[in-house]
Simulated assay, not measured.
Amino acid sequence: MIEGDSLPVLGAVRVVDEAVAALRRAILSGDLRPGQKLSVPALALRLGVSRSPVREAVLALTAEGLAVESPRRGVVVAELGPKEADQIHEARGPLEGFAARLAAERAPAGLAAQLDAILAEQATAVAVDDEDGFFRTNAVFHAAIAASCGNAEIHRLLASLEGRMALALRHVAAQPGHRDSALAEHRAVAAAIRTRDGDAAEAAMRAHLAATRRRVG
């Protein structure tokens, strides 16, 4: 039986995509726990769909690194240890720093307003101690910069890390001190992008990710 409330019964449109999204949310929220077996029959029953799209969804999550093959248990939710989390953050620094530089130099003017709106929502989440709200707006903030950097390969590489980065960040997002610090760091990145200062944007993003890496460790 699958526990948790984040697995809604799905409609018939784009069932595989919906199944991937539902299972990803359940993994990142902790409703599907690290090491938990991803039983296709049980998940299909819970989601109200046939086994075929769920089987494809589990394969997609394995490709993302959110699930792994276990020799004796089949596919299970990935467990991310301290070493793996540190390596992910080490990889993020240069990539996201450069993405922030390019976004400052190349992104359309609307990006600054978009980031301001995201950070206003994030500030509310921090103020009311909303861990899920912070976690969600954090992902949206970083994704908006990556999507606006004007380099499809950097965007693709960051997207390929997205799920595992989220796993690495989930437990640190629970720390109120991290949320306050990260919001201030995000504001510094957004300010540099607003003024089209590529050097400052890259430095601010690298400083933010280095601080996050220390807090995760």
Rank of each mutant, 00 (worst) to 15 (best):
P94L: 08
E69P: 01
N151K: 03
T195H: 01
G74I: 08
A184N: 05
D180Y: 08
M1S: 11
G93L: 12
T124E: 15
L115I: 10
V172G: 02
G30Y: 13
D5F: 05
A91L: 00
D180P: 01
D132R: 00
R214L: 15
A112V: 04
V58P: 01
A123P: 00
A166E: 14
V9Q: 05
H208M: 09
D130R: 09
A125G: 07
T212E: 15
L59S: 13
D180R: 00
I118V: 14
E69D: 15
A63N: 05
G74P: 02
E90Q: 09
V172F: 04
E105H: 00
I145E: 04
L209Q: 11
L66K: 07
G110T: 15
G177F: 04
A113N: 06
I88W: 11
R206K: 00
P34V: 07
A191H: 02
T137E: 14
T195W: 00
I2L: 12
E153D: 12
A127G: 12
G177H: 01
L23Y: 13
A112W: 07
L43Q: 03
A139W: 08
A107N: 03
G93T: 13
A63Q: 05
R92N: 06
A210N: 01
L158N: 03
R214I: 13
R213T: 11
L158W: 06
A104M: 13
H186N: 10
L169Q: 09
E79T: 10
R55H: 14
G93W: 09
V15L: 03
A123Y: 13
R215D: 09
V216L: 07
R136E: 10
A22H: 04
A113T: 11
H208F: 11
D17I: 01
A113C: 04
I27T: 06
R170I: 04
A42I: 05
A19R: 00
M1L: 01
A113M: 07
A60D: 12
A184Y: 09
H171N: 04
L23W: 07
A192T: 14
L169N: 10
S70A: 14
T62L: 06
D199W: 10
E90M: 03
R92Q: 10
L80Q: 03
G97P: 02
A182C: 00
A120D: 12
G150P: 01
A152L: 04
G217Y: 08
A182P: 01
L66Q: 10
P71F: 12
G30D: 14
A139N: 12
A85K: 13
L66N: 11
F135Y: 15
G30H: 06
G163N: 02
P82D: 11
V40K: 10
P34R: 03
G30W: 05
A203W: 09
K83V: 09
H142R: 06
H155G: 06
V15A: 12
A166Y: 06
G177I: 08
G110Y: 13
L183K: 03
E153A: 15
G35S: 05
H178P: 02
R164I: 06
V54R: 04
R14Q: 14
A144D: 13
F98Y: 12
R51L: 07
S148W: 05
H155K: 10
E90H: 05
G150F: 03
